[in-house]
Amino acid sequence: MSLHNLATSGPSIPQIPIGSWADHLVTWLKFNIGVLFDGIKSVVETVVSGLSDALIAVPWPVMILIFILLGLWLRTWKFAIFALLGPLLIVSMQLWDDAMKTLALVIVAAAVSLILAIPIGIAAAQSAWVSRIVKPILDLMQTMPQFVYLIPAVILLGLGPAPGLVATVVFAMPPGVRFTELGIRQVNHEVVEAGEAFGASPWKVLLRIKLPLSLGTMMAGVNQVIMLTLSMVVIAGMLSAPGLGQDVVGAVSQTDVAGGFQSGLAVVILAIVLDRLTAGLGERAAPEARLARRARALKRRQAKGRNANTDAGQAAKVNA
């Protein structure tokens, strides 16, 4: 008996219409709380267009200067050179305005993702119960093909930045939750117990011990969220979300190799800049790095104190 036969001749089970349930749910949402979605839509559009107008209004040399300064502060001079040349290439490809629109969408989407993800991550770290519920949902959100989110988003929110942003938030949120939970859970158990043993409330233990000590890991999550946001924002170009995504989608539909490569390259440059800068921010925020900086500062202060003392001593000698 062939495999094919086995498959068709096996016992038949009733077809479960999960697909049409999802369809009904979306329709129900549209007709019953459509007002809510209209509200979301108008808020998102206002914020995104406001921010992208603002970014575009900044002359590009100023913007590039900001990138360079951030690069010098957070990383090395080598990266600062890339922060000069990369964006210059975008300008020369005539893609600067679209890149700024994408950046605006990334900033808003990442901010919304983190505002949702961090409290959920904290709750999951504090309670095994929440963690058990949240975990499978996160798995679903991360493994569902990204394009699937676009369908309900476009039905509920129409075209434009709003559906793109919602789909992006759903897709980009999970690492924010996971890294926050991980960061808090890996804080030294004895240190947490010390807080409790001196009578600190759970809230104080969270704010003064757990969060400061998990900041490094949480910043790695922020970096991941931003990178996923960028990748999804490009796909959201299919829903005519403004920015480089639209250029890519347009190039694909016209089989325009040159245009596709250029807008793709602009996305890559933007991604590298954002990734390195946020990673640098995370390293600075990590407790070890902050400690090392503090230790260096203390040493400098102590050295200064000693120098002042010996100077005074020498001055006294000279006077004598």
Partner: peptide, 22 residues
Amino acid sequence: QLRELRQRKVSMVFQHFALLPH
């Protein structure tokens, strides 16, 4: 009440010191 007890009456020293590294 337990938290108050720990603040006022009973403190603790830990095996691995449990200092706040930051």
